[in-house]
Protein backbone atom coordinates (compact mmCIF):
# COMPACT_ATOMS: atom_id res chain seq x y z
CA UNK A 1 0.00 0.00 0.00
CA UNK A 2 1.27 3.48 -0.73
CA UNK A 3 2.09 5.33 2.42
CA UNK A 4 -0.32 7.80 3.91
CA UNK A 5 0.07 11.54 3.56
CA UNK A 6 2.63 13.09 5.90
CA UNK A 7 1.23 13.82 9.35
CA UNK A 8 -0.35 17.24 9.64
CA UNK A 9 1.67 19.56 11.75
CA UNK A 10 0.91 23.17 12.62
CA UNK A 11 -2.33 24.62 11.34
CA UNK A 12 -3.48 28.15 10.61
CA UNK A 13 -6.82 29.92 10.20
CA UNK A 14 -7.48 29.79 6.43
CA UNK A 15 -8.45 33.46 6.43
CA UNK A 16 -4.94 34.50 7.58
CA UNK A 17 -3.00 33.56 4.42
CA UNK A 18 -5.86 34.94 2.31
CA UNK A 19 -5.65 38.30 4.08
CA UNK A 20 -1.87 38.25 3.75
CA UNK A 21 -2.21 37.58 0.02
CA UNK A 22 -4.43 40.65 -0.44
CA UNK A 23 -2.00 42.82 1.50
CA UNK A 24 0.94 41.39 -0.45
CA UNK A 25 -0.89 42.12 -3.72
CA UNK A 26 -1.47 45.73 -2.66
CA UNK A 27 2.18 46.23 -1.67
CA UNK A 28 3.47 44.67 -4.89
CA UNK A 29 1.03 46.67 -7.04
CA UNK A 30 2.25 49.92 -5.46
CA UNK A 31 5.85 48.79 -5.91
CA UNK A 32 5.18 48.04 -9.56
CA UNK A 33 3.51 51.42 -10.13
CA UNK A 34 6.27 53.38 -8.42
CA UNK A 35 9.16 51.14 -9.49
CA UNK A 36 10.33 51.13 -5.89
CA UNK A 37 13.04 48.54 -5.29
CA UNK A 38 12.99 49.39 -1.59
CA UNK A 39 9.32 48.46 -1.32
CA UNK A 40 9.94 45.13 -3.08
CA UNK A 41 12.84 44.53 -0.69
CA UNK A 42 10.51 45.20 2.26
CA UNK A 43 8.05 42.67 0.85
CA UNK A 44 10.93 40.23 0.38
CA UNK A 45 11.76 40.63 4.08
CA UNK A 46 8.11 39.94 4.95
CA UNK A 47 8.19 36.78 2.81
CA UNK A 48 11.47 35.72 4.41
CA UNK A 49 10.06 35.86 7.94
CA UNK A 50 7.01 33.80 6.95
CA UNK A 51 9.03 31.24 5.02
CA UNK A 52 11.93 30.84 7.43
CA UNK A 53 10.45 31.50 10.88
CA UNK A 54 6.93 30.24 10.21
CA UNK A 55 3.58 31.84 9.56
CA UNK A 56 2.95 32.65 13.21
CA UNK A 57 5.76 35.20 12.99
CA UNK A 58 4.88 36.44 9.50
CA UNK A 59 4.19 40.20 9.79
CA UNK A 60 0.91 40.10 7.85
CA UNK A 61 -0.16 37.06 9.83
CA UNK A 62 0.47 38.91 13.08
CA UNK A 63 -1.47 41.87 11.70
CA UNK A 64 -4.33 39.53 10.84
CA UNK A 65 -4.42 37.97 14.31
CA UNK A 66 -4.17 41.25 16.19
CA UNK A 67 -6.29 43.59 14.07
CA UNK A 68 -8.52 41.57 11.75
CA UNK A 69 -9.35 38.22 13.35
CA UNK A 70 -10.94 39.74 16.51
CA UNK A 71 -13.38 41.63 14.27
CA UNK A 72 -14.35 38.51 12.34
CA UNK A 73 -16.27 35.57 13.70
CA UNK A 74 -14.63 32.56 15.31
CA UNK A 75 -12.31 30.34 13.27
CA UNK A 76 -14.38 28.08 11.07
CA UNK A 77 -11.71 26.37 9.06
CA UNK A 78 -8.06 25.61 9.56
CA UNK A 79 -5.48 24.41 7.07
CA UNK A 80 -2.00 22.94 7.39
CA UNK A 81 0.73 25.55 7.53
CA UNK A 82 3.03 23.87 5.00
CA UNK A 83 1.37 24.97 1.71
CA UNK A 84 1.08 28.71 2.48
CA UNK A 85 4.51 28.65 4.08
CA UNK A 86 5.99 27.11 0.95
CA UNK A 87 4.23 29.80 -1.08
CA UNK A 88 6.05 32.43 1.01
CA UNK A 89 9.33 30.85 -0.03
CA UNK A 90 8.38 31.01 -3.71
CA UNK A 91 7.31 34.64 -3.21
CA UNK A 92 10.63 35.34 -1.53
CA UNK A 93 12.58 34.14 -4.56
CA UNK A 94 10.63 36.40 -6.91
CA UNK A 95 10.76 39.39 -4.57
CA UNK A 96 14.53 39.04 -4.10
CA UNK A 97 15.05 38.97 -7.88
CA UNK A 98 12.64 41.91 -8.28
CA UNK A 99 14.30 44.01 -5.60
CA UNK A 100 17.77 43.20 -6.91
CA UNK A 101 16.70 44.13 -10.42
CA UNK A 102 15.30 47.50 -9.41
CA UNK A 103 18.14 48.35 -7.02
CA UNK A 104 20.91 47.22 -9.37
CA UNK A 105 19.61 49.38 -12.21
CA UNK A 106 17.84 46.70 -14.23
CA UNK A 107 14.25 47.94 -13.94
CA UNK A 108 12.92 45.51 -16.55
CA UNK A 109 14.06 42.48 -14.54
CA UNK A 110 12.71 44.19 -11.43
CA UNK A 111 9.34 44.81 -13.02
CA UNK A 112 8.97 41.32 -14.53
CA UNK A 113 9.87 39.51 -11.30
CA UNK A 114 7.69 41.82 -9.22
CA UNK A 115 4.87 41.43 -11.75
CA UNK A 116 5.04 37.62 -11.53
CA UNK A 117 5.02 37.78 -7.74
CA UNK A 118 1.96 40.02 -7.98
CA UNK A 119 0.19 37.54 -10.28
CA UNK A 120 0.83 34.72 -7.81
CA UNK A 121 -0.30 36.78 -4.80
CA UNK A 122 -3.39 38.07 -6.55
CA UNK A 123 -4.39 34.60 -7.74
CA UNK A 124 -4.01 33.35 -4.21
CA UNK A 125 -6.02 36.23 -2.79
CA UNK A 126 -8.83 36.08 -5.32
CA UNK A 127 -9.24 32.33 -5.92
CA UNK A 128 -7.30 30.67 -3.13
CA UNK A 129 -5.05 29.02 -5.71
CA UNK A 130 -1.49 28.55 -4.46
CA UNK A 131 0.67 28.81 -7.57
CA UNK A 132 3.87 27.84 -5.81
CA UNK A 133 2.19 24.71 -4.47
CA UNK A 134 0.93 23.83 -7.94
CA UNK A 135 4.43 24.10 -9.34
CA UNK A 136 6.00 22.18 -6.48
CA UNK A 137 5.42 18.73 -7.96
CA UNK A 138 6.41 19.89 -11.45
CA UNK A 139 9.75 21.09 -10.09
CA UNK A 140 10.17 18.09 -7.85
CA UNK A 141 9.57 15.52 -10.59
CA UNK A 142 11.97 17.24 -12.97
CA UNK A 143 14.79 16.49 -10.56
CA UNK A 144 16.55 13.11 -10.76
CA UNK A 145 14.70 10.26 -9.12
CA UNK A 146 15.49 9.48 -5.52
CA UNK A 147 14.72 6.05 -4.20
CA UNK A 148 11.42 6.09 -2.39
Amino acid sequence: MPDAHPPTRREVDVRGPRFAAWLTSAVLAVALLTGSGVLVAVQAAVFAVGALAGLRYAPYGVLFRVLVAPRLGPVREREPEAPPRFAQLVGLVFAVVGAAGYLAGAPLIGAVATGLALVAALLNAATGLCLGCELYLTVRRARPARTA
Binding site: A29, L33, A111, L118, L123, L129, L131
Partner: peptide, 16 residues
Amino acid sequence: MLGGALALTALAAWWQ
Protein backbone atom coordinates in the same frame (compact mmCIF):
# COMPACT_ATOMS: atom_id res chain seq x y z
CA MET B 1 3.13 46.51 -16.39
CA LEU B 2 0.49 46.49 -13.68
CA GLY B 3 -2.16 46.06 -16.37
CA GLY B 4 -0.24 43.13 -17.79
CA ALA B 5 -0.01 41.48 -14.39
CA LEU B 6 -3.74 41.95 -13.82
CA ALA B 7 -4.58 40.53 -17.25
CA LEU B 8 -2.30 37.55 -16.66
CA THR B 9 -3.94 36.93 -13.28
CA ALA B 10 -7.41 37.02 -14.82
CA LEU B 11 -6.32 34.64 -17.57
CA ALA B 12 -4.78 32.20 -15.09
CA ALA B 13 -7.87 32.33 -12.88
CA TRP B 14 -10.13 31.65 -15.86
CA TRP B 15 -8.00 28.75 -17.05
CA GLN B 16 -7.90 27.27 -13.58
